[in-house]
Computed example of a mutant assay.
Amino acid sequence: MNDRPENERATDQTDAGGPADINVEASADIAEGQDNQADFEAFMRLAKENEELKDRALRLAAEMENLRRRTQREVADAKSYAVANFARDMLAVSDNMRRALDAIPAEAKASDDAGFKSLIEGVEMTERDMLGALERHGVKRLAPEGERFDPNFHQAMFEIPNPDVPNNTVLQVVQSGYVIGERVLRPAMVGVSKGGPKAGAADAPAEPGPPNPQSEKDA
């Protein structure tokens, strides 16, 4: 018979690697597995947050770049078109100078009056200097004679019957047109051909129509 107390026998089983040791090891494995799962979930959560922050940073950088480009474009436009209204007024002055010069009879221009010739030369020089100053500020003159009619830059005033040139070719410029940058400051008033051969579909000129009002709205 085994007269040893029950607690001593339990102690012997524990010291010998009995069921108590197995339970402790199993509990440790479970706890380690739970810790690993928690660490993995935390890692995945941090990785997701990192991707979201990275994506947000990229979008913010793209927005800042777009804002920078838009600001540069607006500043450039402001510089290019700041003189548009002033240039348009100066063109009216230049037109009056040209009308005055064109109104001088040919015999008067051919006269020997030195004072009158000096006056004509002075007006012509003033006109050239004014147009040159405008050109230095981005205002350029349109010379569409012989070109196809373009309603964005030309305003058709009348038609000229001519069977020898394609329809809607600019044959006469009544008043010069001007652009500033890429905008129309004033369309050229022109006469276009009528009755000539039709151009191909790819080369057909536009039908005469009103000028592009962009310059009036944007300038």
Rank of each mutant, 00 (worst) to 15 (best):
L58V: 11
L58T: 09
L58R: 12
R59C: 06
L60V: 03
L60R: 08
L60A: 14
E63C: 08
E63W: 01
M64W: 01
M64Y: 02
E65H: 07
N66A: 15
N66T: 11
N66M: 10
R70C: 05
R70S: 14
V75E: 11
D77K: 13
D77H: 10
A78S: 15
A78W: 05
S80G: 01
Y81F: 14
A82V: 10
V83C: 09
V83T: 14
V83Y: 11
V83G: 12
F86D: 08
R88V: 02
A92Y: 06
V93L: 07
S94N: 10
S94F: 01
N96L: 04
M97K: 07
R98C: 04
R98S: 12
R99I: 07
R99F: 07
R99H: 14
R99C: 07
A100K: 03
L101R: 05
D102M: 11
A103F: 04
A103N: 10
K109G: 13
K109T: 15
A110E: 08
A110W: 01
S111F: 02
S111W: 00
D112R: 13
D112P: 07
D113N: 13
A114H: 05
K117H: 10
K117V: 02
L119C: 09
V123G: 00
E124A: 14
E124L: 07
E124H: 02
T126P: 00
E127Y: 01
R128N: 06
D129L: 15
M130R: 05
L134T: 02
L134M: 12
L134C: 09
E135Q: 15
R136H: 05
H137G: 08
G138M: 01
G138H: 00
G138E: 01
G138D: 04
V139Q: 03
A143P: 01
P144M: 05
E147G: 02
E147L: 06
R148L: 01
R148H: 07
D150L: 00
F153T: 13
H154T: 00
Q155N: 10
A156W: 02
